[in-house]
Measured scan of single mutants.
Amino acid sequence: MAEQVALSRTQVCGILREELFQGDAFHQSDTHIFIIMGASGDLAKKKIYPTIWWLFRDGLLPENTFIVGYARSRLTVADIRKQSEPFFKATPEEKLKLEDFFARNSYVAGQYDDAASYQRLNSHMNALHLGSQANRLFYLALPPTVYEAVTKNIHESCMSQIGWNRIIVEKPFGRDLQSSDRLSNHISSLFREDQIYRIDHYLGKEMVQNLMVLRFANRIFGPIWNRDNIACVILTFKEPFGTEGRGGYFDEFGIIRDVMQNHLLQMLCLVAMEKPASTNSDDVRDEKVKVLKCISEVQANNVVLGQYVGNPDGEGEATKGYLDDPTVPRGSTTATFAAVVLYVENERWDGVPFILRCGKALNERKAEVRLQFHDVAGDIFHQQCKRNELVIRVQPNEAVYTKMMTKKPGMFFNPEESELDLTYGNRYKNVKLPDAYERLILDVFCGSQMHFVRSDELREAWRIFTPLLHQIELEKPKPIPYIYGSRGPTEADELMKRVGFQYEGTYKWVNP
């Protein structure tokens, strides 16, 4: 592979701008107003304001973009700056750019259920340069409990009458099928589907988006991507930290609602779906819905739930269990780990287990898709061969690698495990991989909904998990304890083995 010439960040961002501006969906010269509902909250200060700053800094926003914060707290732009700027990672050389960014910011205080507050917000936006005809993007960085009041008031008082209007809704989209349907029906009564952007930030990850290209742009994968060759698929999300004093919020939802029903299920769809007619948003989402419709409700015998306990040999936070978090209700049975087996009941995947695993306070930070292939028929190497695996590593250190057998150097035919490896950090030294939120917010500006969740996708996802969630809430089974920093409950490994996964433990990928 030829040595790549190092590029400056300015040059890299210039390439990104060229890609972005050559499309006809990006209205570079139009006025846009980006409204952050819930501007005083954690999500706004840690993710949304920093993301908008990065896009502005790199010249990736339309030229005439204004940012308006809205929340109940009586704040000023200076207050917003004070709480969000520490997350910007701005350099001293960017000081003038930073001043320009905050000059485009404003803030309006108001209630979430008060019509007069929204009329005041609308008047404020109209007073901005060309504000009355601007395109408006409303980001709901809010708890779902206020979605209905907020969307109703936005629709009645704050819509642009000339430009387009788009609304970005953060997960969780309800707690179960019934609450999700209620919320979807409410929002759909106010906005068209092409105006609604239900954001799952995992769909903005580079390697998640790469799944489609790997599958449908490489001839070698087509013939082997089926039940005849693939023994099982494992989708993993692991965090090495616990709730760390923020367990009160987590306890309301648990690990299945927080990660599995959305992030992991979306990745499953991209692995299992048929080739779409095109890369058009609805063509892709149509195929994802077909996959979900082929999955039956989760069966309790295919589920393992766990909850982390303190590690007596650990240090600091590792010595504390979930129930030691003062914000967690006493005696909570909320799971911090889950392993679930699903089956896609169609011709391509009949009988292939899709194993979804996620948890907190585990032994490493990792998100990946792992396809394990069947054993080689007619073994001539005296059971020395391990199964081939194709691994798409989402985070950290984005990579695609194939675990395969090669001859060990020497005189004899002794096979050993090795890999074919594409590590993004080595291959793409001159490429700026956008943060997931950067990519998705740019998608909203461009009107691309491919990486957002459609209402029928959402409904099918909740259909699969709601009976299990209701059973857990009714019966309150005690989750299996696992030690902070471990791989999780051993019962999860036993479940995976029972459905056909072979864990060798003899080879570990190392970032080159």
Rank of each mutant, 00 (worst) to 15 (best):
A2E: 05
A6G: 12
L7G: 14
S8W: 04
S8R: 14
R9P: 08
T10F: 15
V12Y: 15
V12P: 14
G14H: 13
L16E: 10
L16M: 08
R17Q: 13
R17L: 09
E18N: 12
F21E: 07
F21K: 14
Q22V: 08
D24W: 02
D24H: 06
F26W: 13
H27G: 13
S29C: 15
D30N: 14
T31V: 15
T31W: 08
H32A: 05
I33D: 04
F34I: 06
F34Y: 06
I36F: 05
I36M: 03
G38P: 04
G38L: 00
G38W: 01
A39S: 05
S40V: 02
G41N: 02
G41F: 01
L43R: 03
K45Y: 04
K46Q: 06
I48Q: 01
I48S: 02
Y49D: 03
P50C: 13
T51G: 08
W53I: 01
W53T: 03
W54M: 13
W54D: 12
F56Y: 11
F56W: 07
R57V: 04
D58K: 11
D58I: 06
L61W: 05
L61P: 02
E63Q: 12
T65K: 02
T65R: 00
T65H: 07
F66S: 08
F66Q: 12
F66H: 12
F66Y: 15
I67L: 09
I67N: 00
G69Y: 00
Y70D: 01
A71E: 03
R72T: 03
R72F: 00
S73Y: 04
R74T: 15
R74Y: 15
D79S: 13
D79M: 07
I80L: 09
R81A: 12
R81D: 06
R81P: 06
K82R: 10
S84A: 11
S84Q: 15
E85N: 07
E85T: 15
P86L: 08
K89I: 08
K89D: 12
A90L: 09
T91E: 10
T91M: 12
E94T: 08
E94F: 04
E94Y: 05
L96C: 10
L96V: 15
K97H: 08
L98W: 07
L98G: 05
E99W: 02
F101G: 01
F102T: 04
A103Y: 10
A103T: 12
R104L: 10
R104V: 13
R104D: 04
R104H: 14
N105R: 01
Y107Q: 06
Y107P: 01
V108M: 11
A109C: 15
G110M: 03
Q111E: 10
Y112V: 04
Y112D: 02
Y112A: 03
D113C: 13
D114L: 11
D114P: 07
D114G: 10
A115D: 12
A115P: 12
A115S: 14
A116V: 13
A116N: 07
S117Y: 12
S117W: 13
Y118F: 14
Y118M: 05
Y118T: 11
Q119S: 13
R120K: 11
L121W: 02
S123D: 12
S123A: 14
M125T: 10
A127Q: 15
L128V: 14
L130N: 05
L130I: 07
S132A: 15
S132P: 14
Q133V: 07
Q133S: 11
A134N: 12
R136W: 08
L137T: 09
F138R: 01
F138W: 12
F138V: 09
Y139V: 02
L140F: 12
A141T: 10
A141L: 04
L142Y: 00
P143Q: 02
P143F: 02
P144A: 11
T145W: 07
E148N: 07
A149D: 09
V150N: 09
V150M: 06
K152V: 11
I154V: 15
I154A: 13
C158F: 08
Q161L: 13
I162C: 11
G163V: 06
G163P: 05
N165A: 14
I167G: 01
I167N: 08
I168F: 12
E170W: 00
E170L: 03
K171M: 00
P172W: 00
G174D: 11
Q178I: 13
S179H: 04
S180D: 02
D181Y: 13
D181C: 10
L183R: 01
S184D: 09
H186P: 00
I187G: 02
S188A: 14
S188R: 13
S188K: 06
S189D: 10
L190N: 14
F191W: 09
R192N: 09
R192E: 15
E193H: 06
E193D: 02
D194C: 08
I196F: 05
I196H: 04
Y197L: 03
R198S: 03
I199P: 03
D200T: 04
D200E: 02
H201Q: 01
H201C: 00
L203D: 02
L203W: 02
L203H: 02
L203Y: 04
G204F: 03
G204H: 02
E206R: 05
Q209P: 09
Q209H: 07
Q209L: 02
Q209D: 09
N210M: 04
L211N: 01
L211F: 06
L211R: 01
M212Q: 04
M212S: 01
V213Q: 06
V213K: 05
L214H: 09
L214W: 09
F216K: 01
A217Y: 03
N218A: 01
R219L: 06
R219W: 05
I220V: 07
I220F: 10
I220S: 02
G222K: 07
P223C: 07
P223Y: 05
P223M: 06
I224E: 06
W225V: 04
R227C: 07
N229G: 04
A231C: 07
V233H: 01
I234W: 04
T236S: 12
F237H: 09
F237S: 06
K238F: 02
E239W: 04
E239R: 00
E239A: 08
P240Y: 13
F241M: 06
G242W: 01
E244Q: 15
R246H: 02
G247S: 03
G248R: 07
Y249C: 00
Y249D: 00
Y249H: 02
F250A: 02
D251R: 04
D251Q: 03
E252G: 12
E252C: 10
F253T: 04
F253D: 03
F253Q: 03
I256S: 06
I256T: 08
I256H: 06
